[in-house]
Amino acid sequence: MPKHSLNPDKWVDKYADYLFNYAIVRVNDREIANDLVSETFLAGLNSKDNFLGKAKERTWLISILKRKIIDYYRKINSQKGQAEVRVNYKDEDNNGDWLEEQVADDFDRSAEDDMENEELRLAILECLNEINEKHAAIFKMKTIDGADTEAVCNEFNISPSNLWVIIHRARTALAACLEKKWF
């Protein structure tokens, strides 16, 4: 009997943010990242009969998204001239030493920092998927979107004291989950 099953009706609510964060650091363009997420959902829906249930739903969707990202880069690199790296300034007003300006600043974030941040980002989103769905939605709106208490209360039709109880529970569950996954 398969360990996991697919529930496409819940995909957008559960995995859209996770897949979007995975895609955007790789393509660095919001619109393209969203297109890739959409294509991933559609490919997942079309091949759901091939899902064996051995992997988690999220893992399966990520493996599809990885293929979509590879296909995207293959496509843009196959277009003649698109993959060419320009090392000159386009106009004379904007000149300088191109190579010197590209040298990494010591105080800039390193690639390791970016990788660590991405792992952390995905770990937080994984943990948010594991806690109570309503608590996670309220936590995201309050913490990630930075919405006002009043706006969150109106959106979810709850009182401010109720909001803080939910935030407390979400933060406690998230901290416990991150302790297992991150530290």
Binding site: D17, F20, I24, V37, N117, L120, R121, I124, I144, D145
Partner: peptide, 10 residues
């Protein structure tokens, strides 16, 4: 950690 992660949302 949440601040550092710079989580993006759809």
């Amino acid at each position: 950690l949440i601040q550092k992660a710079e989580i993006k949302k759809c």
